[in-house]
Nucleic acid binder design. Structure first.
Lengths: 226, 226
DNA sequence: GTACGTAACGAACGCTGTTCGTGTCAAGTA
DNA sequence: TACTTGACACGAACAGCGTTCGTTACGTAC
């Protein structure tokens, strides 16, 4: 009980003061370099040279911290000026940017599922997406609803990609494993799966993601015509 | 330290033996009546009149238990005979059944995100979905890829629905809250969101879900033609 | 020089998933 | 019938989690 510990970290020279922003920054850094699982209150606090209790002054609880992390990441997406002639391409760019931003923070996408954009920062993105769809001639009703569904597909895809990477599977391995599983199926019980095994395992994650977006946009366009 | 506890639960008369099936059953029962969060190893064990350690003989760990729960639920979906004339309707019925099954077990849907069907039981469903799409004239390539995307949309929707319900929000409340949030936005910063606020908040979860599926199927059909 | 309000902290609580070694029973063998 | 064996079930414990409480240390205003 001597003075070995030198009276806490208090007498250290400077130590930048705590703040909600600094906490979110630290949490995102941990998430980038490891995983969302590693973002524990203790770990974030340690990164800021303090104890977990200190965080609760600036952050209500862990859930809110995760939401703020997501908000920061989603809000940082760049929104180029709308060019109606290439609106579809621009939708693809937008969702790809979103996907990339989430993939850069393994596990964070799972926070987005079921937590639709609600902050001003993410509303900005939603507004932009809506503008793009309207520019493409999609009816207001369809465009408005699509503003829910396109992010839903994007986040769900990001989660899937996360899960694979976090289990240490490289893309090629996963494909091989699934291919094996499918070809090992009894053809008489699963006639269609086995017959089209090649198509089922073809393409990488990105191709399939943009296919999903593309088909959905096709549907929106077709709907506008009919 | 007396003999009050009567030498453990061992001397009880019968007590049905433990098994993987019984464990999954108990876990699903808890999930139905409460939430997936309530499905802890201790809680499941208590439901079976035993301790948490006993479960690990039949279940590798909690994650595997959750996957088995999902497998059981997804595998129980009924698959009516394919009628090519009403294939679209049948796709809707299939995904609705899936959605309902997951909604009956709050929180379970989140297990499905990123854990695509891999067991025989769920492959059955995938095979059926593929058959439906092929019957509708969708090309094998598109149909195969759609077998990934339609479940993805379904599970993501289920998660969203879960999150709302688990936070205690009734649908009407959620809508009101979002509507408030949108109409409170500055029209000059979010011109499109504020302009189409009515469309953005219209419809309930089911309508929007089937809209998403419908648009996607429209896209698949349009693609087959073009 | 003293009192004050605020931010930071150490310690603790109750909970989690999981593991280890012990205990107990039922069946098989001599 | 007496004994061994193997499988299963269990109690206790470990390390970690999110979160809260009461106290401590500080910069500032008087």
């Amino acid at each position: 009980m001597a003075t070995t510990r030198s009276r806490s970290t208090r007498d250290r020279p400077a130590k930048s003061p705590l703040s909600a922003e600094a906490i979110v920054d630290a949490a995102l850094a941990i998430c980038r370099e490891e995983t969302l699982d590693a973002v524990t209150m203790r770990r974030v606090a340690a990164e800021l040279d303090t104890g977990p209790a200190s965080l609760y002054v600036y952050v209500q609880n862990r859930e809110e911290l995760l939401r703020q992390m997501l908000d920061r990441v989603s809000g940082a997406i760049e929104l180029p000026r709308v060019e109606p002639a290439r609106w579809r391409e621009q939708v693809h760019e937008l969702v790809r940017g979103w996907l990339r931003a989430m993939e850069a923070h393994p596990g964070l996408a799972s926070v987005a599922v079921g937590n639709p954009p609600a902050s001003e920062r993410t509303m900005r993105v939603a507004d932009h997406l809506l503008e793009l769809l309207l520019a493409g001639g999609v009816t207001p009703h369809d465009a408005a609803w699509a503003c829910d569904i396109l992010p839903l597909i994007t986040t769900a895809t990001a989660v899937e990609s996360d899960v694979h990477r976090m289990h240490g599977h490289v893309e090629a391995e996963t494909v091989a494993r699934i291919e094996d599983a499918i070809t090992a199926l009894a053809p008489e019980r699963f006639p269609h799966l086995t017959r089209y095994a090649a198509e089922l395992v073809s393409g990488d994650g990105d191709e399939r993601f943009h296919f999903a977006i593309d088909v959905f946009l096709d549907g929106l366009v077709a709907r506008g015509r009919g």
